[in-house]
């Protein structure tokens, strides 16, 4: 397996979806190529950082004290208005 194939298969491997034959070739390359080993670890870390940079609950809580009342009132008023046919 070349480094290029390795990189192409990386996400599928990390998701545990690489078929067995390919997985064996992938892991053999991983054992022999420190470059790809390092590359995959930094890929994995970048994915983890991307996932953690937004905490959905925390984002909502941060905003909860900053929602302008006029926006809430505009939304509620829009519901009360009859919709055009």
């Amino acid at each position: 397996m070349t480094c290029k194939e390795f990189v192409d298969f990386m996400m599928t491997y990390l998701d545990g979806e690489l078929p067995e034959a390919e997985r064996a070739r992938f892991e053999a390359h991983l054992k022999d190529c420190t470059c790809c080993l390092h590359f995959m670890e930094t890929y994995r870390q970048a994915v983890a950082m991307g996932k953690k940079c937004h905490n959905c609950e925390e984002d909502g809580q941060t905003l909860s004290s900053n929602v302008p009342e006029h926006l809430i009132q505009a939304i509620l008023a829009a519901r009360r208005r009859p919709t055009p046919d």
Partner: peptide
């Protein structure tokens, strides 16, 4: 990649531990 499919990649330092990454992003 080069013409033989070899990754062109220079890693200068060991990667950070998962704990370090978690601490960083917090």
């Amino acid at each position: 990649f080069d013409g033989h499919g070899k990754l062109r990649y220079e890693h200068l330092s060991p990667w950070k531990s998962p704990e370090t990454v978690t601490d960083l992003v917090l």
